[in-house]
Design a protein around this nucleic acid. Sequence first.
DNA 1: ACCTTTATTGGTCATGGGACCAATAACATG
DNA 2: CATGTTATTGGTCCCATGACCAATAAAGGT
Lengths: 237, 237
Amino acid sequence: MMSSAQSGARRKPPAQRRAEITGAAAEIALAEGLERITLRLVASRLDVRPGLISHYFPAVDDLIAAAFAEAVAGERARLLGPTGSPLGRLAHFTATVQDADARDLSRLWLNARHLSRFNDALAASLEAQEAIDRDELTALIAAGIATGDFAAQDPAAAAVRILIAVDGFGAYANDREVFEEPAFTSFVADVAEWALGLESGALAEASAATGPGRSRLTAPDHGDFDAGIAQTASARS
Amino acid sequence: MMSSAQSGARRKPPAQRRAEITGAAAEIALAEGLERITLRLVASRLDVRPGLISHYFPAVDDLIAAAFAEAVAGERARLLGPTGSPLGRLAHFTATVQDADARDLSRLWLNARHLSRFNDALAASLEAQEAIDRDELTALIAAGIATGDFAAQDPAAAAVRILIAVDGFGAYANDREVFEEPAFTSFVADVAEWALGLESGALAEASAATGPGRSRLTAPDHGDFDAGIAQTASARS
DNA sequence: ACCTTTATTGGTCATGGGACCAATAACATG
DNA sequence: CATGTTATTGGTCCCATGACCAATAAAGGT
């Protein structure tokens, strides 16, 4: 003969609540890991009771899968989103992926790849995201072949190679002592150049012009050859 | 006022028990994953009480780290152990790593790389094993450069590249639908050839001669050019 | 205004895991 | 043979987690 749901029960439209939940879960996934996504933690982030999370996601595995998809989709915009020449876009991609700021994302992929072993929903979600990455990168490469930026014949094969390289690089995201070796540091760019028939260093040069915030600070000294590529953040829409 | 340790208490020399424990844990790690290493499961495998495992490993994290090291060390023998020409050994390595039979090992590395995030002991163990792999592969490559098998200048850099490629390939070990694409299937060998300045296909040919059991069945048709490399399992000691 | 739906709560239950401990018996050593 | 060490047991405690459920109140439709 007792109460329930009595006091503060701000009722929200289901779609919005659901979005809040996956959003909070995605944040947790990116910052702390997928296994930290727990009914109680997500609930506390939203100042809500754990049961509510179960209401939207009866099985926690599905929430984890959704959180992964959302987090990855959000990050993809930063990697492949910018416009510009195919070479410039690819240079931005490889540089960003290898930047220290991408560690959380690498960790998340690593996390998901492992957890897929025990979570079917996550496995499906992961393979879907893989496919999107592959398609977008393939399109980018195909465009670059059309413009003459790249010399590869098979865009899909090149995309696959580059993405595997990204995974290989990301596998070290949880290592304590960081690798300084250039063979490691620029592995993704090196593989990309190899896969696309570019000259060695082509991507590094292109990304020095376009470059992600941080690395511009360390190499602020050239002002001639970048003119052909540099318009990245401008040509939107 | 009651009993304990009363009935079947086969007392074994500590070193042996310890070995049994890490051995059982290593088996679990390889077959089911590092998170399945639990006091109770390991104990039941050895037909022993859980408390005994705690006695040898007061912190479970240390057992996990030890299990990983043991499992990986055991598998390394199969990969880099065989003798022969540097080219033959490397071909064996790349072929074995990409073989379906190596899935468990890839999964284990993936598992450990992720779990390192939360387990310092495991992180240390993992980086130690990484270093061993790197050193052994570097030595192999250096030998190959000496004999003229390989054309690379920097053996360490080539080793790093090849190992990252292995990790990238292994990242897909938990994928449900398998990738048939050759750019994926032979990624490690392709990267190795690139990193070592070999002709395309050189490793595939060399491994066809030496080959791991299974793949010999699918390609049993050549009998001339392999003569120069074939003596692998013979030159022991 | 009524009535159906359902978002939200509070609470319980079972599971499984790690750490810890006292008692005991097997072993080694003198 | 006596004695001390310790491998081994059985058991407890505590914690985190996911699933489940009945009760309630906020919306929305008619």
